[in-house]
């Protein structure tokens, strides 16, 4: 057979470079919005909505839909709020609750991660403990408060017990879900490349499971924070210090609706702040790296 006459002298590299330029974007990301666009799209709408809400509230107050002890006006509540900030109670309560929440979440993180790893490693453990862990996830952990008080009386230990029972199942389940979502192909890649078992866990399995794990952490924090508030609200004792839940409890005891609303606002603010400053950026980063979101 003679040389193939029709084999063209193609400049493969040029064709390739052209294809890459045409197609190499992989995906089309919208341009990153400028600060003004961010303000108009993300900051303005909630601010406008909040202002409208306060306006309706003021109208309801002026119309005296409820007696003023039950429905104080925005100005009264602002005065109480500012008062708690000035006398230091707001800062103290936020600090006590956030540090409790942080410590409780850190403990849940360690225990939940170890539990998740153990459940993933042992088929038997997964079968035995899995249903209970999933069940606990849907059990409001406030249900544990009476038991915790009977076991530990009105101490920090009682509060942490409730927080742990709220957060650990979410974290363990999140990690497990993350592992289950790892495509089997990735493990084959690790084996083909010649990574050891430990190397495959470290360089393939754990990073692949990260999105599910971060989702579990986020939910775990939400549950920890809710459990903490429930526990603080019920286990009110001078020896426990002043947390946000306890501040709320004081408001109830004094029949001060202004203080109740102030406490709720503070609880909400802390929750939103931690979500916005910690978990949302963490999750977005993990997803964006993997091309799992176009959100910027």
């Amino acid at each position: 057979m003679a040389a193939d006459q029709l084999a063209p002298e193609r400049d493969t590299r040029a064709v390739e470079a052209g294809l890459d330029a045409l197609d190499g974007g992989g995906e089309l990301l919208p341009p990153r919005p400028g600060p003004w666009q961010v303000f108009v799209r993300s900051v303005l709408p909630p601010v406008v909505f909040m202002a409208a809400l306060v306006g309706v509230w003021q109208l309801a107050y002026v119309a005296e839909l409820k007696p003023s002890y039950a429905l104080p006006g925005p100005a009264d509540v602002w005065q109480t709020f500012w008062g708690t900030v000035q006398d230091g109670r707001a800062v103290e309560a936020v600090w006590v609750s956030v540090s409790r929440g942080g410590i409780g979440f850190a403990m849940s993180l360690v225990i939940g991660t170890l539990l998740g790893l153990a459940m993933w490693g042992s088929r038997w453990l997964r079968a035995a403990v899995g249903p209970i862990v999933s069940g606990l996830q849907s059990l409001p952990s406030v249900a544990w408060v009476p038991a915790a008080i009977i076991w530990f009386q009105l101490t920090d230990a009682a509060i942490y017990t409730v927080v742990l029972l709220g957060a650990v199942p979410s974290i363990a389940n999140g990690l497990l879900t993350g592992f289950k979502q790892v495509p089997p192909l990735f493990d084959r890649v690790g084996r083909v490349l010649g990574l050891s078992t430990l190397g495959r866990v470290r360089y393939v399995l754990l990073p692949a499971a990260l999105p599910g794990y971060v989702g579990g952490l986020r939910q775990g924090w939400a549950f920890a924070w809710r459990s903490l508030m429930a526990a603080e609200l019920i286990t009110y004792s001078p020896s426990l210090g002043l947390g946000l839940g306890q501040l709320l409890s004081i408001g109830r005891d004094l029949s001060s609706m202004s203080l109740v609303i102030t406490s709720i606002a503070l609880i909400l603010l802390v929750g939103v702040a931690i979500e916005l400053l910690l978990f949302a950026p963490l999750e977005r980063r993990v997803l964006r790296t993997r091309g799992l979101t176009t959100d910027r």
Binding site: L19, D23, G24, G25, G26, T289, R290, G291
Partner: peptide
Amino acid sequence: KRVHELSGGM
């Protein structure tokens, strides 16, 4: 570049 920024051929 990240994997999701590359075309199938790349």
